[in-house]
Amino acid sequence: MTDLTVSHLVVHYGGVSAVEDVSFTVRSGEWVTLLGPSGCGKSTTLSAIAGLERPTSGRIAAGDKVYVDGATGTWLEPERRDLGLVFQSYALWPHMSVAENCAYPLKLRRIGRAERRDKVREALALVGMEAYADRYPHQLSGGQQQRVALARTLVYRPRVLLLDEPLSNLDARVRERARDWLKDLQKKVGLTTIFVTHDQVEALALSDRIIVMEAGRIVQDGTPTGIYERPTSRFVADFVGTMSFLPATLAEGGAVLGDGQRLALGAGHGRPAGGITLALRPEAVAFAPAGEGGLTGEVVTTSYLGGRYSHVVSVAGTPVRVEAERAVPPGPATLTVRPESVLVFPA
Rank of each mutant, 00 (worst) to 15 (best):
E252K: 02
L161F: 13
R177P: 01
P289Y: 06
A327N: 13
R80S: 11
S57M: 04
G226N: 10
G254S: 09
Q186K: 10
E176S: 12
D184F: 05
E130H: 04
F345H: 03
A48R: 07
R27H: 15
L280N: 08
G297L: 06
G142K: 04
V120N: 00
C40E: 07
V312N: 11
D184S: 15
W75I: 08
Y67L: 03
P166D: 03
L263Q: 05
A286P: 08
Q186D: 11
A248M: 00
M129K: 00
R217C: 07
A149Y: 08
T74A: 13
V155N: 00
R159G: 13
M1N: 04
L52H: 04
L278S: 02
C102I: 07
I218V: 15
V240Y: 11
R173T: 10
H311M: 05
A215Q: 09
P272R: 12
D208W: 13
K65F: 15
G331E: 12
D238P: 02
L295M: 14
W93C: 06
H8A: 15
L182M: 12
T318H: 15
L92H: 05
A255I: 11
L124T: 09
N101P: 12
S341C: 08
E323W: 11
Q200G: 05
G84V: 14
Q139K: 08
P332A: 12
N169E: 07
P105R: 11
P231F: 06
M243R: 03
D199K: 00
P55W: 06
V337Y: 12
L265G: 03
I49Y: 10
R113S: 11
G266Q: 03
E20R: 05
L154H: 09
A114H: 03
P224E: 00
G293V: 12
M243I: 15
S244T: 00
A172Y: 07
T296C: 15
G306P: 08
A288G: 03
T72L: 07
I194W: 08
A71E: 12
P224N: 00
P247A: 03
G270R: 10
R109E: 14
S303D: 02
R157L: 01
A324E: 06
V337N: 00
Q220L: 05
C40R: 05
I211P: 04
L106W: 00
A248L: 10
R217W: 13
V32P: 08
E122W: 06
A286I: 11
S7P: 03
V10W: 07
E325L: 04
A48C: 14
A324T: 04
Y304N: 02
V11F: 14
A133P: 04
G15D: 13
G274W: 13
